[in-house]
């Protein structure tokens, strides 16, 4: 009898190895998407007319099924991790651009006026005022992007076994091994929840300035 986390050799990975691979394939695209989304979103904030077409384009890209995306990309990037990660990065972009645009736009006009009036230039204003205040909205977007990315990686099993935990699901179905199927599904879900929880924690640490529900009574006294 195999141990719960023992995997057949044709998966080519140990269980922790698969989990690591899954996280890499899911989170690198989100990071890439964030790096790309920040300048795109800033452009959309500065040039208002650009936002609608950008939103339209990313939504159309989002509508392309991942499998079709993979098939097209195989011609260029082969049956590799990259082929899985490019669509995932594009999908993150769709979630992140509106999140960042909304976040940056939510900075009150008077805060921006004060920043300008005190002599902060455009670059300082962006990095020292707009971006930090947009952090909650950006993290909200990242949570959606990460969770959807983690679940989508599994589809990569269909192109040359690039699905990490998805490969385990595929093997389990092919050889009729319910243990592997359950292990894959539950592991993927646990990963998604764990990453989400980490992001929530990170947001709390990043934004001590946010009013929290259930504030300590001491704060009440300070409010007036």
């Amino acid at each position: 009898m195999n141990g719960l986390f023992d995997l057949p050799s044709d998966l080519q990975h140990s269980y922790p190895g698969l989990v690591g691979l899954h996280l890499r394939e899911a989170l690198i695209p989100v990071a890439a998407g964030l790096l790309l989304a920040l300048p795109v979103a800033q452009l959309c904030v500065r040039l208002r007319w650009l936002y609608a077409p950008v939103l339209g384009l990313t939504t159309v890209l989002y509508a392309i099924p991942s499998l079709a995306f993979f098939v097209v990309l195989i011609d260029y990037t082969g049956q590799t991790e990259t082929t899985v990660m490019i669509p995932l990065a594009v999908y993150s972009l769709v979630v992140l651009v509106p999140a960042i645009v909304d976040g940056v736009r939510s900075v009150p006009q008077e805060t921006l006026d004060a920043a300008t009036g005190m002599g902060l230039g455009a670059v300082r204003r962006y990095f020292q005022v707009q971006l930090p205040i947009a952090a909650p909205a950006i993290v909200a977007g990242l949570r959606v992007a990460c969770v959807s990315s983690i679940s989508l990686v599994s589809v990569g099993m269909l192109i040359g076994n690039q699905g990490a935990l998805g490969n385990m699901l595929y093997t389990g179905m092919t050889y009729g091994r319910p243990r592997l199927i359950w292990l894959s599904v539950i592991s993927t879900a646990v990963l998604a929840v764990a990453v989400d929880a980490l992001l929530v924690l990170a947001l709390r640490l990043l934004t001590p300035w946010m009013p929290r529900g259930g504030a300590r009574p001491a704060r009440k006294a300070a409010a007036r």
Binding site: P108, T111, D113, A114, A115, G117, V129, P132, W209
Partner: peptide, 11 residues
């Protein structure tokens, strides 16, 4: 420069 509602940096 002082404005209405102070315009403080909330963060």
């Amino acid at each position: 420069y002082v404005i209405q509602n102070a315009g403080l940096f909330q963060h």
